[in-house]
């Protein structure tokens, strides 16, 4: 029980590192956005699992409930999810522009093209 109490953090860390790895190791920009989203979700899970109280119930007033989960993390994450999708959309829009300008969304190829341009000037 002693170590199992920390299990939620380890799940969060595993997911966070999975997302982090995708962002730094993969060259495809769409894949990077997906990785960023996984990273983001792990933070959501961290907040929500902190708000959980054993024996508590959803934070909606009822007579049967004795303890409630903490409503504050729920509020923060609720808005964060919607803001997250808005920023994801912004990132994807940037990717579309990059695709139109360079003809590729692989990071290596874009860098190679940039270096070639600089060498010519």
């Amino acid at each position: 029980m002693d170590t199992l109490g920390l299990f939620n953090y380890w799940v969060v860390i595993f997911l966070m590192m999975a997302g982090f790895y995708t962002v730094i190791a993969r060259g495809n920009l769409v894949k990077k956005i997906v990785g960023l989203n996984i990273f983001q979700t792990s933070v959501f899970i961290l907040y929500i699992s902190l708000g959980k109280v054993s024996g508590g119930t959803a934070p909606i007033v009822s007579d049967a409930a004795t303890a409630y989960s903490n409503p504050l993390p729920h509020v923060l994450i609720l808005t964060a999810i919607v803001v997250g999708v808005a920023t994801t959309a912004l990132g994807l829009a940037l990717i579309i522009r990059i695709k139109e300008a360079y003809g590729t969304i692989e990071e290596d190829e874009i860098l190679a093209m940039d270096q070639k341009d600089e060498g010519r000037e």
């Binding site: 959501f44 899970i45 929500i48 699992s49 708000g51 959980k52 508590g56 119930t57 959803a58 934070p59 909606i60 989960s69 993390p73 729920h74 994450i77 609720l78 999810i81 919607v82």
Partner: peptide
């Protein structure tokens, strides 16, 4: 999220 009592968040 549903299991962790965060119904609003699960919804979103």
């Amino acid at each position: 999220f549903m299991v962790l009592d965060a119904v609003d968040v699960a919804f979103t």
